[in-house]
Design a protein around this nucleic acid. Sequence first.
DNA 1: TTTATTAGACTACACGCGTAATCCAAAAAT
DNA 2: ATTTTTGGATTACGCGTGTAGTCTAATAAA
Lengths: 135, 135
Amino acid sequence: MKELPKISEAEWEVMKILWSRSPQTANEVIEALEGQMDWKPKTVRTLISRLLQKEAIAFQETGRTYLYYPLVSQDDYVQTETQSFLKRLYGGAVKPLLVHFLREQKLSSDEISELKRILDEKTEEGPDRDRRKDR
Amino acid sequence: MKELPKISEAEWEVMKILWSRSPQTANEVIEALEGQMDWKPKTVRTLISRLLQKEAIAFQETGRTYLYYPLVSQDDYVQTETQSFLKRLYGGAVKPLLVHFLREQKLSSDEISELKRILDEKTEEGPDRDRRKDR
DNA sequence: TTTATTAGACTACACGCGTAATCCAAAAAT
DNA sequence: ATTTTTGGATTACGCGTGTAGTCTAATAAA
C-alpha cells in the first residue's frame, strides 16, 4: 500500500485547487489562488514543484505547458490526517473529541437530527459488529 | 489575552509529561519519556529549553536544579489546535467531521448513548439559542 | 583538595517550509 | 531574424524542528 506523501499547509491550498478541478495549468492554479492567498506566482510554482517531487500530483505535457492533476485523493488525505491528529491530541480516542464538538459547536437542528439518525443506525448494527470494508 | 505559543510535535510529548504531573525536574521528565520516545537525554533538555523560550513552561529553582511546570493548559491547547485543524481540513465545518467520525469509528453502545444524550440536550436548548459563555 | 560528574547554557547541523528570485530554452512578438 | 516574454528548472535564504554534542560552573566523589 502506498505511503501518502506529507503535504504542508501551503501545499494543501494548491491541492485543494486541483482537487476541485483538474487537470489545470500552473497559471490556472495561480489564478485560482489569487486574491485569496496573496502569493507571488513563483511561490505557487514552487509549491507545485514540491508536490511533484513528493508525487502528490503529476502532469501531462501539452506543448510547452503542463497540465497538473492530483495523484492522491482528498478523502484519503483527510482520513489520514485526521487519524494522526486524533492520535496526537486525543490519544486516539474519538469520543472525547466528539463530545467536545457536540458540546462546543453550534449545530442547526437539522444537523442534530442527522447526527442522531447516524447514531441510531449504529445502534441497530450493534456496537461490536465490525462492518468496515476490506482493506 | 495571551497568545498560545506554538508547540511542536516533539515538544508536545514533553508537555504531556508535565501536564500529567508537575512540577518535575528535567531528569524526571527524561525518565518519564524513556522507553517510549527513544530520545537521548540531551534531546529532551533541548525540548525543555525551547518550551521555556516559548513560555509554554517555566521553572522554580531549587538549589542547582529546576522544577518545571506548564504555563498553558492542555485544554486550551487542544481547543486551539482542534480549531485550526478543523479549519484546515474541513474548512471549519464541524458537521462533516462529526459525520465522518460517527460513521467510521467504532464506538461502544455506551458511548453512543452518551453522544445521543448530548445531542438531546442540545435539541432542548434550541438550535439558535446562543448559550456560550461571555468572551 | 584534586578530580569526576552533572545541570543547565550554548552551539551544531541537516531538512522541511514559506517565500520567492534567477537561469535557460522555447515560443511569441516585432 | 532579432528581441521579448514566458514556462519550467534551479537556486536562495531564514526560521522551525528533530536530534543531539560541547562548554562551563558547581557539586559530589575520591
